[in-house]
Design a protein around this nucleic acid. Sequence first.
DNA 1: TCTCTTAGTGGCATTACACTACTAACTATA
DNA 2: TATAGTTAGTAGTGTAATGCCACTAAGAGA
Lengths: 230, 230
Amino acid sequence: MIETLAVSSDIPATAQLHPMPFTRIELAILSIVDGRLAVLLGKRAGAPHKGKWALPGGVLRIDLDRDLEGAAQRIAGERLGVTLPYLRQLQAVGGKSRDSRAPWALSIAYRALLPSDAIDPKAGKRLEAIRWCAVDEAIADSKLAFDHADLIRSAMEATRAEIERLELPFGFLPEAFTLGELQSCCEAILGRRLDKSSFRRRLDERELLEPVAGEMRTGAFRPAQLYRRR
Amino acid sequence: MIETLAVSSDIPATAQLHPMPFTRIELAILSIVDGRLAVLLGKRAGAPHKGKWALPGGVLRIDLDRDLEGAAQRIAGERLGVTLPYLRQLQAVGGKSRDSRAPWALSIAYRALLPSDAIDPKAGKRLEAIRWCAVDEAIADSKLAFDHADLIRSAMEATRAEIERLELPFGFLPEAFTLGELQSCCEAILGRRLDKSSFRRRLDERELLEPVAGEMRTGAFRPAQLYRRR
DNA sequence: TCTCTTAGTGGCATTACACTACTAACTATA
DNA sequence: TATAGTTAGTAGTGTAATGCCACTAAGAGA
């Protein structure tokens, strides 16, 4: 039926028979705030879950979006005024009565890494307010809207696994950074301390970074060599 | 072209304003055939891609399916007459002009592990034929329908990564099995030989298995201890 | 000049694992 | 009955990765 009829110009009867799910994109945007891994939340301005905190997101628009990643970028631009580097699809969740706006709701969750100052705290269209929330607290918070606590947990786990594999969180870092800054980032993501010596040796063997010749970060103490992505 | 609206008896205007994508589930069902990792393909009986081989799949039915995994199980039951253990969501793919039946098509891909004899080769409703195809060949085959070669690659990579982490492929094995059988499975998935001694030591340290006391697999050569999942 | 703090390096111990070699137990066949 | 062939199972050694600890270096500030 669906398999057998279909020409692009004709409308196959069966495809019209079945209503399709209310389809959204949700964004788990992570950052480091006060040395802890944090996620961007928006306070919902309307029903459902009015007044609760939730991941920013929006409806998939088949007239505007070329593909799923394009939809995620459009929504990030419209709602938050940013484009998202290091975007990665997390998972799809869907089911009956996930969202009272429709009988069946499907969400595709994306994750991005951003420095926290890349978001204007006054942005957030269609949201009363936005804020950064430590992921530990967000996951434990039973008052988050929808099933967003699960999505945040999934974002955190995926990001931790990347760091364990030494896929570095360049999204959190400026173009040039010190090894100390990089290590602090990784520690914030993993939620545990790392050994400086082992960490550097591992980076070294994999040849992931190159020093920016002559450039040092100078500050209160001994200056540190700056590195960039290789 | 189809424009499927999200519908509901009492919904806010926003949910109804936008047409929703044509949403399907695709199944990457893996097995070991002749010592090689293989994927189940169906020959398409109708347009689009009529006569080409594709992953089995079906349309998400919001009237029938409670959630995404339920949809995957319903489709596996209807099309292949099986229920799928060790089901895992792979990824969502979507975009304009993925499928000529609709202006915007979204597919959620699932992966399952099954012994090859769990599928009746005469099954395959709405498909001309079904067959097992070695994943290497399927990935290299530019004539597969839609973007299914990408989905198969993704299924293979996800499964290999699981084996590397010693998440064992119990879906391919009977209740009780020998260490030799388990090792052969893993070798077929990884596409390389493993060292017997190391493999056993790693299993041992992680305490993943327990011997079935007194039970041995007897055959042409020295009998082997049977193990089960712990 | 001394202390404090961060940057950066070196060495030893432990662990995980690859590689090799070996013994054990069964069948089949001469 | 002896022997070859095949799979099951164990043991030991070397090496690579890395955890852990200790050390030196370079700046600021008291």
